[in-house]
Nucleic acid binder design. Structure first.
Lengths: 253, 253
DNA sequence: CGGACACTTGATCGGTATCAATATACGTGG
DNA sequence: CCACGTATATTGATACCGATCAAGTGTCCG
């Protein structure tokens, strides 16, 4: 499995002016002229398969991506193979900013599903900063948002119990998913295995299974078709003592 | 203890042109013209006492700070009082960027020692982005660096054992301290209590004490005058399986 | 049909939390 | 100066959460 097999650069299907994501209420409106610039900034589209590695720790990627569709996760490894998943990426999220700014990647990114990515060149970033300060500001904003999510994750792993942690994580992911329209009116299907959950929560696989089971027994979630569905997001949040996402519109680069 | 008592706005003792930090090898050189701008961006200096709250979760601070001297820590609380320390701030670090960009603070910051802070106005940020794209880029870089540190911390809390975690944390803090000259040639004195360590590591106070004791028995660190000193940073890093900080020069705003 | 993978479940082990008690230093008010 | 409270560090005893070990199930797919 896995590897970098399913990657392929495809013709552009979307110009930024008719981006399928931008109309969503989660994103703030862009000036016409910003849209034009971003459209020029975009160099192509990339499709990757489930299990493909999008970016790998230690590499110096020349690219930066925005997720158009699909899911991925960001992770780090210890030398002996222990894995910590840091966060998940879904439509509208930027991938590879750290590497673009700082050179070497210090984490890897792997696709959880087939994905469609917008591709940007790292070298074009300085020009963006020079000509479009508003977009530059947006990029910093996006970096801050990532930091905020990490803060909450760290709080969770450090101080919440296993049950609270699992409840928080699932509520968090599904809230983010709903915000970018990953549902229709059916619940969001989160395409992860229990091993992914375990590696995000800092728990063993077996204990994660038993913890998830408690959430299922309480009818807060259920597990189906190799993925997780949320039944009662409110009670998950309550159980986790989590306030929920802030609802501000955010930029989409 | 604590509170916001010792805060006071003081006269400017340093103009940015003769900033005591900037000559350090940890920081990259600035253009003359950047320096002039930053100097105008700086609105004053603030002193705070040990234990003072610099920024508080839920507030909308109009300010942004750079640490000139002293130590602080950034943390979040759960409703029942459980605390997770997210990171430490030391000279050269920016405090309050998240709040400045996104509005409401979602974490608090408390001083671990007397501090001297440079004060900037949040309202001036857009002007910085408009007129100095290089500095804007730097600010994004700084946000990415914070994210990188959080990634490593999350890996630690999620996947390292108690002993590895403690070794990592102490090596990490002392490496950062040395990089900004907090030593002379004597080892860095880290001004934290074991309760701070515990709340950073995601461990109980008692177990943290027993873990620290093992590090002391192995003569890797010792505890003195209510603070921690590193005896053998290399062996700490080895024990934690940590590669160390990347040595790039960084911007100082 | 066999093998890989994801998910389950029970038994046992051990790392960490919790409880409890003591020691030391420090600051403050009597 | 002493008495007291508070903060910090320390240590032992015990409890429990979550890790590890060991099977076993179901499903998909070559």
């Amino acid at each position: 499995m896995s590897g970098q097999n399913g990657r392929s650069l495809s013709a552009r299907r979307y110009s930024c002016e008719n981006c399928p994501l931008r109309p969503l209420p989660a994103f703030r409106a862009f000036e016409k002229q910003e849209l034009v610039f971003v459209n020029g900034f975009k160099k192509g589209e990339l499709t990757v398969d489930k299990g493909d590695t999008v970016l790998v720790e230690g590499s110096h990627s020349a690219h930066l991506y925005t997720v158009l569709s699909g899911w991925a996760f960001r992770y780090k490894l210890l030398p002996d193979g222990r894995r910590q998943i840091l966060n998940y990426s879904m439509p509208g999220d930027l991938i590879g900013l750290q590497g673009s700014l700082m050179g070497e990647m210090q984490h890897s990114v792997e696709a959880l599903s087939p994905m469609l990515l917008c591709l940007f060149e790292r070298e074009a970033l300085p020009e963006l900063y020079r000509s479009h300060p508003g977009l530059a500001y947006d990029i910093t904003w996006i970096a801050s948002r990532e930091e905020r999510m990490l803060d909450e994750n760290l709080l969770s792993v450090g101080r919440r119990t296993a049950l609270e942690r699992a409840a928080y994580l699932i509520a968090f992911i599904s809230s983010r998913g709903r915000a970018v329209g990953l549902n229709g009116r059916t619940p969001v299907q989160i395409p992860i295995t229990q091993q992914h959950l375990a590696d995000t929560l800092g728990l063993s696989l077996v204990h994660t299974n038993k913890t998830i089971r408690k959430l299922m027994d309480r009818k807060l979630i259920f597990w189906r078709d190799g993925g997780c569905e949320v039944v009662d997001n409110e009670r998950l949040k309550e159980l986790a003592r989590w306030e929920g996402l802030s609802e501000d519109r955010r930029p989409l680069i």
